[in-house]
Simulated assay, not measured.
Amino acid sequence: MSRQARLKILSIAHPAVSSEGGRLRYHSLAARDDVDVHLVVPAVWKEFGRSFVGTPSDDPALKIHVLPIRLPRAGPMGWYLHFYPGLRRLIREIDPDVVHLWEEPWSVVALQARVLKGRAALVMEVDQNILKRLPPPFEAIRKQVLQHTDHVLSRSPDATAVVRARGYRGPVTPIGYGVDLTSFFPAPDMPVAESMRSGLRIGYVGRLIEEKGLDDALDAMARAAVPVSLAIMGEGPHEDRLRQRVTELGLGERVSFQGWGTPAEVASFMRSLDIMVLLTRTTKSVREQFGRVIVEAQACGIPVIGSECGAIPSVVGDGGWIVPERDPGALAKLLEQVADDPALRSARGTAARHNVEARFTYEAVSHVLASACLAAAGRGQS
């Protein structure tokens, strides 16, 4: 395909604000010879108590537009009120064939893009997997945006059910999160100290909130008839209660805490584990939308024990085990089983890496995104 015929995609995505994380999949997309990619990110983004500064592109194939946003954290709707004052001018300058939003359809920026997109097709990428009626004006925004959406990229079957229930009737394509395989990869050789380590080492990476089920992991450790240690990387409001529970259960020498790390530090932490755990509990406001740490651990060759919450079972695939939510007894039995069977852990670790290579590389994710955009613009599948 000639350069003049390339599909012009304008993607609006606050998760791509920095050069790491969500930004990385766009490099694979921009490397294609059938698309011309423009990415819009906020100049500053605040999330979970951290502040991220929008960075320019270090890839000549990827055109990044760092724009100021208004209303970044106003009111109870948090992330969903922001919009870009400079978006109208940018859309006129680029004249895209497709506007892609990595934002929820009830967000103000989604409505802004729907109003300003001009001739462009609209592709929405959605994560929200709990159906609930939103307060005004957000329910009306969602209805308006979905009525004018040409293609939905969905993180899970539950997320698809939500947009269907709110009136979307067009095509839907599943899309996962990608993993940076240059950071997340198996250890080349297991250190002797680790190969002779006594007991099972499990770990968790993420926010320390009650809904993530770490209390269940602690209770299971106390019940298990085999030695199990737990390493925790992350921060959050539930940390004090977790530390108290560790003391109550007499697990002080078997549980460690550390704060957030860089991607390289997270990967190194994961490679030090036998198993990663993600035991999210379903509540009225929480259902696991994907579980990015699952695929990061699996990319390191580390199998995952996940709960039945939301998308966790489908993401884990053959690369781990699934236990019922809020069931420390079932988890304790599983820990006893896997602790006594290193061959089983090794086989699940190999399956975990294969799961990522087949479904969650940046190349795989960018291919899905490009195919949806091409289809929305009427150019067929790539």
Rank of each mutant, 00 (worst) to 15 (best):
S195P: 05
D158M: 14
S156Q: 03
R169S: 05
L230E: 09
S154C: 11
D150R: 03
F184L: 05
P174N: 09
A231I: 09
P174D: 04
S229R: 05
H151K: 06
I232W: 07
V205I: 15
Y177G: 14
E210Y: 08
D150A: 05
G203V: 13
A224T: 13
D219Q: 12
F184G: 01
D180W: 03
A159Q: 02
G176N: 02
L153M: 15
P188K: 03
E210P: 02
L181V: 13
F185V: 04
L218T: 04
V179A: 15
L146C: 07
V172D: 02
G206I: 12
V152G: 01
R155G: 10
Y204I: 11
Y168F: 13
Y168M: 05
P174V: 10
L214G: 10
R207K: 10
R207A: 12
P174A: 12
R223E: 08
V172F: 01
A231T: 14
R166M: 02
A220Q: 04
T149G: 00
V163H: 00
M221H: 04
D158A: 15
L200E: 08
V162P: 01
V205H: 02
R201P: 02
V162H: 00
T149H: 02
D215Q: 13
G199D: 07
T173N: 02
P227Q: 07
V205F: 01
D215F: 10
T173F: 03
V145D: 00
L200R: 08
A161G: 11
S183F: 03
L146M: 12
Y177V: 14
